[in-house]
Design a protein around this nucleic acid. Sequence first.
RNA 1: GGGCGUUUAGCUCAGUUGGUAGAGCGCCUGCCUUACAAGCAGGUGGCCGGUGGUUCGAGUCCGCCAACGCCCACCA
Length: 882
Amino acid sequence: MLPKAYEPQAVEPGIYEFWESNRLFKPEVNGGSESRFSIVIPPPNVTGTLHMGHALDNTIQDIIIRWHRMLGHKTLWMPGTDHAGIATQSVVERNLKAKGQTKYDLGREKFLEAVWDWANQCMGGITGQLRRLGVSPDWERQRFTLDEGCSLAVRTAFKHLYDKGLIYRGEYIVNWDPVTQSAISDIETEYEDEDSFLWEIAYPVAGGGERLVVATTRPETMYGDVAVAVNPDDPRYRHLIGKAVELPLTGKQIPVIGDEYVDTAFGTGALKITPAHDPNDFKIGLKHNLEAVIVIDEKGAIKNLDFIPEAVRGLDRFDARQKTEALLESEGYLVRKLEHRHRVGRAQRSGAVIEPLLSKQWFVNTKPLADQALKALDRGEIRFIPERWTKDYLRWMTNIQDWCISRQLWWGHQIPAWHCGDCGEITVEIEAPEKCAHCGSGQVRQDPDVLDTWFSSGLWPFSTMGWPNTEASDFRDFYPTDVLVTGFDIIFFWVARMTMFGHEMTGKSPFHTVYIHGLIRDEKGQKMSKSKGNTVDPVETIEKYGCDGFRYALTSLITYGGQDIKLAIDKIELGKLFANKIWNAARFTLMNIEDVDDQPIDTANLSRMDRWILSRYNTAVREANAMMADYKFGELANMLYEFIWNGFCDWYVEYAKKQLKEPEQAANTKRILLHVLSGILRLIHPIMPFISEEIWQKLPHRQDMSVSIAPYPQADEGLIDDTINQQVDFVLEMVRAIRSVRQQYNVPHQTAVCVTIEVPEPAEREAVVAGDEILNHFVKLEKIDILEKLNGKPAQAAANVVGHSRILVPLEGIIDVEQELDRLGKKMTGLKSEQEQLYKMMSNFEFLERAPQDVVEKNKSRLNEVNKQIKIIEEQLASLAG
RNA sequence: GGGCGUUUAGCUCAGUUGGUAGAGCGCCUGCCUUACAAGCAGGUGGCCGGUGGUUCGAGUCCGCCAACGCCCACCA
């Protein structure tokens, strides 16, 4: 006998172990299948911990994967982790710092060993947490972005792109993070408005008392100024173009140049040009052939250069800003300091203010790659769900900028480029070359930089499948993959890179569908973040509520439009209750079908409730498959909840109690209970894998060792019966109406009552007459009179209406006239307003003319019903008054 | 400056070919009915952000406005 309440914590770990040890997540469990289906996991950071975003993302993937596996497809979910360059290296550096060491103390080799140790130590953490989430990737295929195969893929791709001229090395302004001391890409920087100042500084014009006032948000960069630009159409300054101004505090002379870029309306209309520390100035500098003077070093400190005031040299850029301001003020160059709000770029990872810095880096020329991906989008080879993300993807791809891929880190894929010590040329090879390809010198040294983490992530859908070996069996069987599931925040970082690389390296889109889900927010709608301290730990939540309840909650909150999800604790609570409900429905069923035979359901011998539940069940099956195919997971979860709880439990199981006592029905009822329960377990399994498995193991006559490989139910259309549905639903509505009356007068549920039902409509009468046993069972009737027409009026009866029918419950002596008048009066008000609206429509000539016939008919019959109900209530009110 | 999303019952949210509103929680009432009190039954609760339009008919389509949120953009 099953325990009274479902205890997820007690069963979940054992079940996971059962799946894994039986290797049920391997595609080979459906070995003979022609159909293939594959997903690659968005590899979580190897040193990371599972957060709500992962939980949602992986639950969705697991639902899709489990469904396909149960459909019998050869299904692969490729798992793995990401080495996450900056994130991982920073952690190890921080740990070293706690010991008073830096990476330089260890040296590159020893440091990398330390990072590997750390990564290996962490590897089980995140994958263990994924297991706790119940997901079903093929762990035996687990990959790592820095493993041998992925590394080979990275070097191969790099060489391919380099040879094609799509990777180049050059000196440009990059986003420099002074904390990690590395370049980062454009999309790794985030801009936010911050309060600051606009400094106006006077640059004396050479040879005369005139002063040219520039406006800047970054006075500390002035030492790197090489010119002042004004708009050539600006009458205030036009005459100064070609002249020189003095760069305050330095004794330097710099030219005034004319450039249309300068906005005459902003600031003073004069722009200081610092090519080495501002991307726009860099462009202007190139255009005017200006030298770039680097005055801030990689740590963000002012360089030790002789033209810079001694007091400023070596200062951090923000201290230098203050010091410079002070110097300018004391020497009379500072004109004004205005409050100014402007956008400040910060490194996504470290939070440091980005220093635009001129430096030599590796870049991917992305335009040609993006073009291929865009063409594929045009051809419809890839689609986004929800569709609106297509536009974002398209816009970004269309305006794509070259991608800075080199990072001044040690942890990652070291760039497979070797510099020649003799001729200075670069040799790019997949394996380390012995000599320079250009001059044959043996003095070759590998480029010290590593690649952006997203470079290897971009190859993930095929590097994990064995590429560059295009004969690898996984590559042949499972590439391209089918669907990619992720959050919108990494469409540019990852999805775009995968499509670009996919087309370039394999000639194919790496997936045909990109399913984008919303962000998980806290119950107030705030973004969850460690710094805000509002994160909810999925693993803790699972421990507390059970994995299935949690997964149900997440799934039921997913919307068709992919909106962000506010994770309300109520919903998780509900998921837990739902699991318990399933548990108890199973408990009841199993208790009562111990001796069930293994014969098929005798469809020639079905009660009306039998036919009803089989019809509803098959409808649910049909819808479940359709919703799965359409990625409508929220609707799926809610539909199954409704069917299981309100359909199966509330009505069929209750009615089965009666049928089980009747010898001629018991055997078939047991078969039906088992059939529907087995179906429910399979239907719900992709969402709630543990409880469905736990119960599955206890089912009599089951064919499959695990529900995870049992066939997903397919609808038996022959059992879907709209007539029986409507008729039984009508009777159940009547049950509710009678219960309502009973409740109104506090009739104890054990007390049987007499009911008189007036059913003038033939169709309704047919339903009620055929369903009187149902009525009887659900409302404990002492006596039921079903009449076509009431003869006389029963005194002291409480009344209700359903359809065209009148329900009378004679409750002699108990009737409270006041209460009854009030109750019927309320009902009347509602009916009257509905009647009024219906009349209005039915008397509207244009409505009758233009509305579709079925709508007119529907209105007509509803009006009929409303009129009848009003009449009945009027009669009852009259009888009460009399 | 562009673009996107959200605005429906006290709360969290469904509502996809336009036919006048649903769920869960909460609240109120009655029940320990032999699967489940983590439950059962009954009930209360909404001019669907505002405004104009298309239509016989709009939560649902279109325009404008408002609030909140997000993304993108080199104005120093």
